[in-house]
């Protein structure tokens, strides 16, 4: 397993957990520039998807997950199980995404 494995499951079929390394986490706070906020405000008058914000939160989430992965790799894990994501609105136009999970060392079970 070269790449870090991320999963919301507690156990991966066909693999056993050989070591628990504790909780790893990553978070990121981002904001869009004024223009995007303005456009979103206008779009909010007529309703519908706010693509700018969807994008913003997706980028923020990717960043948070990347930071969690970096932390897991630094302590020698090869998988993060039971991953949870949570979003919080910090102030206007800025959002925090928090990702956390259990860092473990997985070994492929031999059958």
């Amino acid at each position: 397993m070269a790449k870090l494995l991320l999963s919301t499951l507690e156990a991966i079929p066909g693999a056993t957990i050989t070591k628990h390394l504790g909780l790893v986490q990553g978070s990121s706070v981002r904001a869009k520039h004024m223009g995007r906020d303005l456009m979103a405000g206008l779009k909010n008058m007529v309703g519908g998807e706010l693509k700018g914000y969807t994008e913003l939160l997706q980028e923020t989430r990717d960043e948070a997950i990347a930071r969690m992965e970096a932390e897991a790799e630094a302590i020698g894990a090869n998988a993060v199980l039971n991953v949870r994501l949570s979003t919080a609105s910090i102030t206007s136009g800025a959002a925090e995404v928090f990702a956390y999970g259990a860092a473990v060392v997985l070994a492929q079970a031999r059958s």
Binding site: L6, A40, K43, G47, L50
Partner: peptide
């Protein structure tokens, strides 16, 4: 195992 994810922001009129 692969983490899959979908997200959307929707506003009211």
């Amino acid at each position: 195992a692969q983490l899959v994810c979908g997200s959307v922001v929707i506003g009211m009129d």
